[in-house]
Structure formats: C-alpha cells, structure tokens
Design a protein around this nucleic acid. Sequence first.
DNA 1: AACGCGACCTGCGAGC
DNA 2: TGCTCGCAGGTCGCGT
Length: 326
Amino acid sequence: MPELPEVEVVRRGLANWVVGRTITGVDVVDSRSIRRHAMGTQDFAGNLEGTVVQDAVRRGKFLWLPLAEADAVTDTNVPDTGEPGTAPRVALMAHLGMSGQLLMQGPEVPDEKHLKVRLRLSPADGMPDQLRFVDQRIFGGLFVTAMVPTDDGGPGGLGETPQQLIPVEAAHIARDPLDPAFSFDHFYSRLRKRRSGLKRVLLDQGIISGIGNIYADEALWRARLHYARPTETLRKADALTLIGHTQDVMADALAAGGTSFDSLYVNVNGASGYFERSLNAYGREGQPCLRCAAEGRTTLIRREQFMNRSSFSCPVCQRRPRNGRW
DNA sequence: AACGCGACCTGCGAGC
DNA sequence: TGCTCGCAGGTCGCGT
C-alpha cells in the first residue's frame, strides 16, 4: 500500500513523463474512481481536455498536477476567488488510496483488469502516450479542483519549483518529514497540545503527513516507543529521535524505490518496490524481535488492535506503562 | 477536542 | 469443491 515514499516515486515519474504534455483525451472507465469530483464524469473530462500539465507536486500522500489554461472550473468543491476575469488555477488531484497505480502505457498494452481512468497525452519523443489510473480497491481516486494560496509558505512537497498554491482538499494536510519546509518545532508544539496516543498523532495527516500504519510501526520500533504513549509525556528529545527515525525509514524506502507488499502497488514506470524485506516490526507477529535477538534475548513481536487496525511492536523494547508512569 | 465507527472497496486465505 | 467470513488499508464524515 502506497505510503509517502511510494507516492514520491510516482511524483518523480510524473515529473519526468507527463509535465509539459497536453491532455488530449479522457476515458473514465469506472466513475467510482472520480467520485470526489462532485460534478461528474462529463465535467471531469471537460476540465482536463486541452490543458497542459505544468508540474507534479506532492503533500503527504496527496499528489497533483497543476494545469494551465483549463476552462472555467465548475467544481462546487471550489470556492469563488472573487477575482473577476481570472479563472482559478486548477489541478488534477490524485490519491492512490490502498491500491492505486499510475502507469505510463502505450496503446498496444491491453487494458489492465482494474483500469479506472485513462488520460491520453500529446506525443512526446520515446514516451508512452497514455497515463492510466489503475485501482483495485477504489479507495483512491482522481478529481479536478482549484488551488488556493498556502498559508505556510515555502515549497510544496518535493516539487522542483516553489508552490504558492495548493488544492483546497490538501490545504489541511501538514508537511511531511521529508519536506524541506517541515518544521520539527511546529510538529512538537502541536503534539504536546494533543492529549492522545503517540501513534494516533503519527497517523494524523493534519499534524504530520505521509506516515501510514506500516511506517508508524517501524518508526516506533526504531525509537523504542510504545504506540499508546501519552503525547503529553513525550520529551522533546524522544520526539526528535522519533522524527529522525521516520525520516530514516522513509528515506531508506525511497532509496529502494518504495515499498510493495502484495504487488498491487507499482510505480509510474511499472517497477515494483522491494523494501518490505527490511521491515522490523510490521507484519512480523510471532517472529523474533531482531534487536532483542542481537542482545541475546528471544522476544516475539506482538500484534494488537489499536485504532481498529493492527499494531506490531516488541513487548520488551517498547514497554507499556507500569503504574501509569512512562 | 478526542475518539470510535461506518462507509467506501476487492481479493485472499482460513475455516467449515 | 465452494461457500462465508474476517481482514487489509487511508480518508472522510458523523455521532458521542
């Protein structure tokens, strides 16, 4: 399932293959994949056809392509800017959800079983002319929306050009740990104002983005912290260590081309990731904690339900509180 | 404010 | 063999 490193891999692929090209046609094969586009299929296609892709930008797990010269946007998601004569800047937003893929394919490649949307692109030397959105579980999707000014300045995501605009639907998403504009102090102050469990905050995309269930467990394991640790007891040094580990684990995954568990996820060029072999906690229920093993203990990774999902951790390295004290 | 939960989906493996 | 059931996951929106 794509998390931040995988989405970044896709973003880079889009930057290479799609930026500068014109969208010449749109086939919506399954309208469920554009259900966040309130005005429906015709409006979706109409807003895309004839536009030029200007950039590929990411914030957390949201990914978007700013579009030049789109016709007037009629999407009701979009607030009126009130500026007469200036159409709002629009973007094609994408979220990969659980199983979404963006694939560059030539016309000779048969439609994928779970093909949902096909964008036809103007010809470009040596590049396939279709961008396909393929999604088995349909948690992801595409929609066209307007962009509004960011309130926190700085570059948006890891796009190569500074972004002053962000799609309204991504405006509530916090900076991610790989973002050059990520501020640890800002994150820590927000964390300390929360009265919640540590993992809950790690998964809250409004406080820190890009972390999903897998990397949350991995970072907590590396930092030797329990998922239910009350945020108000977390010292700054511990938080700093934790964030350092999220950055490490994501950077490792990015270097490896992204994680893939079940071959649902493929990057924009169609190559699977292979980082899953490096996981220390996630999915390792009943297997030895490798850190304990290195220290001569045999401890088995446990699985518990937390936030209605599985949490994997080491019962020795990542202790629960005793007498309520951490 | 914090949290739980249902809805949205499909495929897969376990159990009968 | 074929059925049902539970599970996997991210995000959003609603109820408490």
